[in-house]
Simulated assay, not measured.
Amino acid sequence: MLLFDLDNTLFPFRQYWEEANRTTFTSSPLTNGLSYDAFLPLLKMFDEELWPLHVKEAITLNELRVERFIRTMHALGRSVNKEQSQHYFEAFMENLLSSITMDEELRDFLDKLQQSYTLAILTNGKEKEQWRKIIQLNLTSVIPFEHIFISEDIGYDKPDPRAFQHVLKTLNVEARSATYIGDSWTHDIQGSIGVGMNAIWITPRQASSINENLHLSRTIYDIEPCLFHLNRTTTIT
């Protein structure tokens, strides 16, 4: 089985995120007259500051999203309340989700893979948001509905071992016969290897094999040599 991450693995989420941020910033009256070049680094900085609190479950994802905008605006000399921040985020998310379109190259590549492997997705995130991405990318045309797992729905976020184990148990696949493919070292690679799976790390680093169970690939479209090497040392279903 090939188990895929979604954001920044099957599609360039960062690119969509950047474009939606600029669109929302440009069109919102809350940010009128401000510099986007000053706004974006601050937004990212406060996101990084707040993220550890979310990981520790001290704040929810919604609270993080609201608070990072409030802090960013305060740093730029403007005051916004939680309701305004929530509306700003909702506009941003709609801009992001509505811009996602089907990628024929991705669909054809996955269609080729599914002729030899069982395909599935395990992604962190909110169920409604992640499903909209999946549907707009038309991924259900090559990956069955019942092979798609979203953290909010199953109750566990990667890298919690229970997230990976839930997928393996549900699909009746042994860990050694499964390969996780993702871009996050902590959430995707360490998490999957920790439960005994193989892994392919999507990273701009020089592509190579770190050991017999872990390989590096620059993009999703470069994983076939990794799969060839993994198939020589294990059986991927």
Results as ranks from 00 to 15, higher is better:
Asn138Glu: 15
Lys56Thr: 06
Pro29Asn: 11
Tyr36Trp: 12
Arg78Gln: 04
Thr235Cys: 10
Glu152Leu: 05
Asp5Gly: 04
Tyr88Thr: 01
Phe145Pro: 00
Phe145Asp: 15
Trp51Lys: 07
Ser35Ile: 07
His147Thr: 10
Gln86Met: 11
Glu127Leu: 12
Asn32Glu: 15
Gln130Gly: 00
Ser141Ala: 12
His215Leu: 06
Thr235Ile: 10
Phe89Gly: 00
Leu227Trp: 06
Leu110Tyr: 02
His74Thr: 12
His74Met: 10
Leu230Asp: 06
Gln86Glu: 08
Leu10Ser: 11
Thr9Ile: 10
Thr9Arg: 05
Glu67Ile: 02
Met1Lys: 09
Leu214Gly: 01
Trp17Gln: 14
Met102Glu: 13
Thr203Ile: 11
Asn198Pro: 06
Thr23Gln: 15
Asp111Leu: 11
Lys44Gln: 10
Arg205Met: 09
Gln115Met: 09
Ala163Cys: 05
Ser177Asp: 13
Ser79Ala: 12
Asp188Thr: 04
Gly191Cys: 00
Ile134Gly: 08
Ser116Cys: 07
Gly182Asp: 04
Tyr156Glu: 03
Cys226Asp: 13
Thr233Asp: 08
Thr186Asp: 15
Leu3Arg: 05
Asp188Phe: 00
Asn21Ile: 05
Ala163Met: 10
Val195Lys: 02
Arg205Gly: 11
Leu230Ala: 12
Phe13His: 14
Phe89Cys: 01
Ser184Leu: 08
Thr237Asp: 06
Ser141Asp: 15
Ile220Trp: 00
Glu174Gln: 13
